[in-house]
């Protein structure tokens, strides 16, 4: 759908360009100029990209009359949007230098991926939520938690990079510009708490509808969703019991996020599954 003279994908393309420029400038500044790009400039650029992406997603949402979460392209875009939103609104409280650069790189890569595979975007699909705002909330929260877990995977990568540089005594590259490993470990734990809480809330809302109509969700979607939730829950438990080293914990966060991303495939397929058609029925009919 067109908004303000541009199609939704064009807005998203422009946002991707802004994220790529932010990422490129941050990398150039660190590696070539050996200077840290000022955080406020990064924040302004990323926020600008996020506004463009929001316009694109809003234009797409107008088509459905709800959150644009009906195909893989939209799922990925919404996850990227959530990660960027987290950086913009919560990131400054973390005071993590270089998180903006990492987040914009993350946004660029996933956005390019989703834009470059036309099959991921099937705009002719029907809306998936019927007229139930709760199912929409369930889906939006789940995707938002994936955004949080995406940022967690980024901060985990930053931890591993810093730890490796310290172990190998290599002080070049991004090392001087990134936060301490203690700060990263602390942020990782907070992000896991937040992400797990949001995902749990999402599943709790979804469960209310699912228990009333067990066939409304197909098994692969149900299984992968529960597996992701259990994986993050287990990680949280192990971290609280201090059974994992920070390094193991960071690798696990990256691995579980990779699995979570793959689980989007099951979620996406569920939109095509005839079994799942009931989920698009208005809730009044489901009940």
């Amino acid at each position: 759908m067109s908004l303000l003279g541009l199609e939704d994908r064009q807005w998203i393309f422009l946002a991707t360009v802004v994220f790529a420029v932010t990422s490129g400038l941050g990398t150039y500044s660190a590696l070539k100029l050996r200077r840290n790009a000022p955080r406020r400039y990064t924040l302004v650029l990323v926020s600008f990209g996020w506004i463009l992406q929001t316009i694109g997603l809003y234009a797409r949402g107008l088509q459905y009359g709800g959150c644009p979460l009906s195909n893989r392209f939209e799922l990925v875009q919404f996850m990227v949007w959530s990660a960027i939103a987290l950086y913009i609104f919560v990131g400054p409280a973390f005071r993590v230098s270089f998180l903006g650069m990492f987040t914009s790189t993350f946004a660029t890569l996933f956005s390019i991926l989703s834009l470059s595979i036309p099959a991921w975007d099937s705009p002719n699909r029907t809306p998936i939520f019927g007229d139930s705002p709760w199912i929409e909330t369930h889906a939006a929260l789940a995707l938002f938690s994936y955004g949080v877990f995406g940022v967690l995977a980024l901060t985990s990568s930053m931890y591993l990079l810093q730890s490796r540089s310290l172990k190998q005594k290599k002080m070049g590259g991004f090392f001087p510009f990134m936060p301490s490993i203690a700060e990263l470990a602390n942020i990782n734990l907070r992000l896991l708490n937040v992400g797990f809480f949001i995902l749990s809330s999402s599943l709790a809302i979804g469960a209310v509808y699912w228990t009333k109509d067990l066939e409304s969700v197909n098994f692969p979607k149900l299984g992968t969703t529960i597996a992701v939730w259990l994986a993050y829950g287990t990680l949280l438990l192990l971290r609280f019991r201090q059974s994992l080293s920070y390094k193991q914990y960071s690798w696990a966060c990256i691995a579980v996020f990779t699995v979570a991303l793959l689980s989007l495939e099951a979620v996406d397929r569920s939109f095509d599954d005839p079994l799942d058609e009931s989920s698009v029925r208005p809730p009044s009919e489901q009940l």
Binding site: L166, F175, S180, I181
Partner: peptide, 8 residues
């Protein structure tokens, strides 16, 4: 400086 990179 290295201590700060480890402990903040």
């Amino acid at each position: 400086d290295l201590s700060l990179k480890i402990f903040g």
